[in-house]
Design a protein around this nucleic acid. Structure first.
Lengths: 235, 235
DNA sequence: CCAGCGGAGTGGTCGGACCACTATGCATCG
DNA sequence: CGATGCATAGTGGTCCGACCACTCCGCTGG
């Protein structure tokens, strides 16, 4: 009753092999997004490994955003959308320090400026109104927590308007709560509120004018300000 | 003898909590890169959970590139360098299909063109020689497999010369073997070798001339070609 | 017809046993 | 005396079997 599908001389741990097996099943289309998998017990039997090892494989694919386990119901393939798979990108931001934070901001500057330029060319009136809403809310309060929330939403809305979900998901990770909170903390303490406000206004103006080049410049300057500040902090 | 450090009313699975605990220990600097962790058995005891659950947490952090388990030796924190943490980025490329592949290529075009521009301004003579080596090797053979290998190395060297490890690691993931192999297969079948060759030569010329703008344009055009081809394939 | 209950099925957790590999120190050999 | 090799303790890797917590669905009874 053992595996009928054995082959090569085994490489790596059984768990690692199980991860690859499931991954390739999805890559080859044998498992569709949203589809339910066999039970842990059945999967383990199919691959000829113990349930423990199979659970580790499933857990691994779960944190990668590939699978989703619902207690009492079953295991499902996620929608496999950009957001699902790139959620782990936030971990990078969380665990990066020092020079690497500057590098991350540099990446963000490049992507954010391009995304903002694209948004300027494609944004709808409804989306623009949403952006304005967060801009206004950001300027109407002094609570740092609330400002941060609307700041994030401001940029998220713009990234969505750019029309590239993958790019938006990466930017989301690069702006993850803890990352922003850590860097912003010191930045805003230096009275950068006024400057930030002006920069956001400039970005919005460029979007409203449907001017991609102005939008690109404004976004690059916005992120670049923080980048330079952080660079100075380290040097 | 149970946990002395309990707090809130528990949320999520015990494994998920264990993952967060270890992650925060690293984020707070209580665990340094390269440092060895207590044994699975000790860790489990410390958090008051079973070894099975702890193993799942460790496995999760292993696939994320945060921890590294050495059989018979112990569990260690990785160097936490960009390459370690962004390795999972390749999974995204592997599991993406259709429109998402175009989005990924768009992101790659943006980052690759910027990286190439930066490289033009910073590349050393030694690095440039290395780039030339792969360019020559690429043009000296007809074996698609070998061409692909040198193609990858060509761009990898340039990304390294840009001086941003994070960016280089992301580009590495976006050019991962399987991803390239899948897209390149059809692309090269249409006699794109000549065009690719010309594009690579243009990139190299711009690098040798230390001309960032030319380098940016050449790289953008290079990736853009593939991007357009893929877009046409889907439409 | 519907609300409520119950059981079957599923993932989540636990504990313990054993295997495979590594590293260390000691005994042995040159 | 130094180098070699081996025994051994310690570690991660795997497996098993049991039980818990939750979900889902069908059955029952009003």
């Amino acid at each position: 009753m053992d595996g009928v599908d054995d082959e090569a001389p085994q490489k790596g741990t059984v768990t690692q092999r199980a991860i690859e097996r499931i991954k390739s099943m999805i890559a080859e289309g044998r498992l569709e997004p949203g589809q339910r998998l066999p039970t842990e017990r059945d999967l383990a039997a199919q691959l000829g490994i113990s349930r423990s090892s199979m659970r580790e494989a499933i857990r691994a694919l779960t944190v990668l955003g590939v699978l989703e386990a619902r207690h009492g119901s079953g295991i499902y393939v996620t929608a496999l959308e950009a957001g699902d798979l790139l959620e782990t990108f936030g971990v990078v931001a969380d665990l990066s320090r020092g020079p690497r934070l500057v590098e991350l901001l540099e990446v963000r500057r490049i992507l954010e400026s391009t995304a903002t330029a694209l948004a300027a060319a494609r944004i709808t009136d409804d989306q623009l109104a949403e952006v304005e809403k967060h801009l206004a809310a950001m300027n109407a309060t002094d609570d740092p927590e609330e400002i941060l929330a609307h700041d994030l939403a401001f940029h998220r809305e713009i990234a969505a308007a750019a029309g590239n979900e993958t790019m938006a998901a990466i930017l989301e990770g690069l702006s993850s709560r803890t990352f922003r909170a850590r860097v912003w903390r010191g930045y805003q303490e230096e009275g950068a509120f006024t400057r930030t406000r002006r920069e956001h206004t400039a970005i919005h103006r460029a979007l409203a004018a449907r001017d991609p080049e102005a939008a690109r410049a404004a976004a690059a300057a916005h992120v670049g300000e923080v980048e330079e500040w952080l660079r100075a902090q380290l040097g």
